[in-house]
């Protein structure tokens, strides 16, 4: 039992060290990118691209829009990198940019009427991210994602942002509130409403 404890402690310490080293590396990368190093900026993009694209897809529910939003987000990062204060967490700063870009994009884009969702699916406007792997499980997953995109469209913009950041990105309610410029009470209300709608959607289409 004691041996297990020691092993766990060692693993924990190693994990913390790796996390610290990772953040230090990222801080150095950001500093170099701020100094105009394009390679460092590219490395930074590689480090964050999956999270950025995922968040954009979750907020917009569309593959092409998500890639466009990710591109625009990194452009904004590049333009405003000199304003970034290293004493704050970079990922939080980046999240804020992505959320703002997605919000702008959603407003520019003509809003898809929920009553014509089926038409949207038929016309291919609501493409889900698809893997090149065409196995049966991938097809099922793709179907699940289609339904999820459909479920997300039943939410209001605020509800979608709140639940994506809370349930999918794993941010605390306070962090979500700060990111969205709202109060924790409002965010809780939006999360509650979104979870109820998703449950109702799932009960209707999947059970």
């Amino acid at each position: 039992m004691r041996v297990i404890d020691v092993t766990l402690m060692m693993d924990q310490t190693r994990g913390e060290n790796e996390a610290t080293q990772g953040s230090l590396t990222m801080a150095r990368l950001i500093a170099r990118a701020q100094a105009g190093d394009r390679q460092a900026f590219d490395r930074m993009m590689i480090e964050h691209q999956n999270r950025v694209v995922s968040l954009a897809w979750r907020l917009l529910g569309n593959r092409e829009d998500a890639l466009d939003a990710a591109q625009e987000s990194f452009m904004r990062v590049y333009r405003h990198l000199h304003k970034y204060d290293p004493s704050y967490e970079f990922s939080a700063w980046l999240y804020r940019i992505v959320v703002n870009v997605c919000r702008d994009q959603a407003r520019k884009r003509s809003r898809i009427d929920t009553s014509s969702l089926d038409e949207a699916f038929e016309s291919g406007r609501l493409n889900e991210p698809v893997s090149s792997d065409k196995t049966e499980s991938a097809a099922i997953l793709a179907q699940e994602r289609k339904l999820l995109a459909k479920a997300l469209l039943t939410l209001t913009e605020k509800e979608r942002q709140a639940i994506v950041l809370r349930d999918l990105e794993g941010l605390a309610t306070g962090e979500v509130a700060e990111l969205l410029g709202s109060s924790p009470t409002t965010v809780r209300s939006q999360i509650s409403s979104a979870r109820s709608k998703i449950r109702a959607f799932r009960a209707r289409f999947l059970t």
């Binding site: 694209v53 998500a66 991210p129």
Partner: peptide, 22 residues
């Protein structure tokens, strides 16, 4: 439903798409 939402919402983008974006 929360578990379903979290599992289904993991998108997978091809590396080629991400490279194009960069």
């Amino acid at each position: 439903s929360r578990s379903w939402f979290r599992e289904a919402a993991i998108p997978s983008f091809d590396e080629a798409d991400l490279a194009n974006m960069r």
